[in-house]
Write a protein that binds this DNA or RNA. Structure first.
Length: 466
RNA sequence: UCCUCAGUAGCUCAGUUGGCAGAGCGGGUGGCUGUUAACCACUAGGUCGGCGGUUCAAGUCCGUCCUGAGGAGCCA
């Protein structure tokens, strides 16, 4: 058996030579691949996330980013010197462990490593996050370390899978990725607050939506999408809000509202199903999330007109508790607030599509209904369980005169929209699209209380770091 | 901007009617040959968010400010 430890702490040059020889032949692998090496001695490289010990045994809880495994260091097997190395290890020490892979029914993963070698690669002193409970603010202050936890691992892997399945969905459906710019000269919608920045002596803004540029892109490629970060300077301090979040925005030429709803519905079913395929077990065990609500995400979603939704909310308002009743007051023409959306979605077991909102409460580029100009051909998809609006979209105004009038009515700078109006001058066609908020979707899939855990480094009204 | 709640050890929290500042975890020391957020014993660790006030006496009551959390509005 070869023992090796931190350079300088080993005694003999013959041992160093043996170590060098061993390093050439040792198989280095990851925890996720460990099942292929039962009975063999392999090397793992990672970190110690916990340790339990007795006088003659050390149970090293090891993680390498691909999974976790327990390495057992027995004093009788490895000797005093190496055992002392194991004994001195602290939480989150970076280590290399060599050992024989064995199957063990006592192990949650079914495998265990019987250590034969151990090296301290990087020590860790006074690691701030213990294996006990912590508060949200403390954990967010240590986000750069919190990412190492099992829970954050699961959430960010779900995010990764959703991003990949979103891209796959559109790529497979003939869409072209056309990135929208993040630095823009003016507001897209004029309604929300933008982050401003200086741009070589001129005023510029961080984009709050890539949609207007996708309208140009879809006239070039037929079907296009963008997927990137987006910025909102709203002073919102709720668990549904981030100032920097990711949004995917597809746009399709020759598509009307009905086609847009078909697309959004099929898209959402597809990415949720994929997330469940890959992560159902983790979501259920690590995040303790009931999967029923996600398994219900199947076509068709209820399609509810705004008119009908208002009538439903009025009924809910009438029989609501006094406290809620005040918040549920509604008249035709008002936009829905969070309480309206939450109570409405509680009536259904899957996402719902609310369409044809009053044009007065929607953005200037929304297409007005030909027969009822007081409503816009738009749709919001509301997730169940109070997760709120995850998709907003609709058919765009394709008539030049109507759009010009809308820009003036919203008091927007006409010069900045000249290029946008060109799209209506040169071969305008009906077109539609939508935007999906990635973080709200991740929060919904993972059953999280707050969206801040769904992005690696959250930016909120009161937090610009780490 | 408005409403509600919170701030006590490194972390999570308790602290009764205003009467000596506490526990668990984490750290340290010692013990334990199969632990599963291991366990057992001992130990160190405090500007009770800041300032001001009431009182013989304030973590506790009052005022004010700061910070954090949730919600409204707004939004994906």
């Amino acid at each position: 058996m070869i023992l090796w430890t931190t350079p300088g702490k080993t005694g003999s040059s013959s041992l160093a030579a043996a170590v060098a020889a061993r390093e050439v032949t040792m198989i280095t692998t990851r925890v996720s691949e460990i099942g292929q090496y039962v009975g063999e001695v392999v090397r793992l490289q990672g970190w110690l996330f916990n340790k339990r010990s007795s006088k003659k045994l050390q149970f090293l809880q090891f993680r390498d980013g691909s999974g976790t495994i327990q390495a057992v260091v027995s004093k009788a097997d490895v000797g005093n010197e190496l055992f002392a190395v194991a004994d001195a290890l602290t939480q989150e020490s970076a280590i290399r462990v060599d050992g024989k892979v064995v199957e063990d029914p006592r192990s949650p993963s079914g495998y265990e490593l019987q250590a034969t070698g151990l090296e301290l690669v990087g020590p860790s002193v006074d690691y701030p996050i213990s294996n006990k409970a912590h508060g949200d603010a403390f954990l967010m202050d240590h986000r750069h370390l919190w990412l190492r936890s099992r829970r954050q691992h699961t959430i960010l892997r779900v995010r990764h899978t959703l991003i990949k399945s979103i891209r796959d969905y559109f790529d497979n459906a003939g869409f072209v990725l056309v990135d929208s710019p993040l630095l823009t000269p003016a507001a897209c919608e004029g309604t929300t607050t933008l982050f401003g920045t200086e741009y070589f002596g001129r005023q510029a803004f961080l984009s709050q939506s890539g949609q207007l540029y996708q309208e140009a892109a879809c006239m070039a490629f037929g079907k296009s999408y963008c997927f990137g970060p987006t910025f909102r300077a709203e002073k919102s301090k709720t668990r549904r809000h981030l100032t920097e979040f990711w949004m995917v925005e597809p746009e399709v030429a020759y598509l009307d509202l009905e086609g847009d709803m078909d697309l959004a519905e099929d898209f959402l079913c597809s990415i949720i199903a994929r997330a469940l395929d890959v992560h159902a077990k983790e979501i259920e065990t690590v995040l303790e999330r009931d999967l029923t609500a996600l398994e219900n995400v199947r076509k068709p979603f209820p399609r509810i007109s705004y008119d009908n939704a208002v009538e439903q909310v009025k009924v809910l308002h009438a029989k609501a508790e006094p406290e809620l009743q005040e918040q549920l007051a509604i008249e035709w023409g008002m936009d829905f607030g969070s309480p309206h959306e939450t109570e409405l979605t509680k009536q259904y077991d899957r996402p719902i599509m609310v369409y044809n909102y009053p044009s007065a409460v929607k953005a200037f580029y929304m297409k007005k209904d030909v027969l009822r100009p007081e409503v816009a051909r738009c749709v919001d998809i509301l997730a169940p369980e109070g997760y709120g609006e995850i998709i907003g979209g609709g058919q765009r105004e394709d008539d030049l005169d109507t759009l010009e009038a809308a820009i003036r009515a919203h008091d927007l700078p006409e010069e900045a929209f000249k290029w946008f109006l060109d799209l209506r001058r040169y071969g305008s066609v009906p077109h539609a699209g939508f935007g999906l908020g990635l973080e709200r979707t991740v929060a919904w899939v993972c059953g999280l209380h707050h969206v801040r855990e769904t992005i690696p480094f959250a930016r909120t009204m009161d937090r610009l770091g780490p």
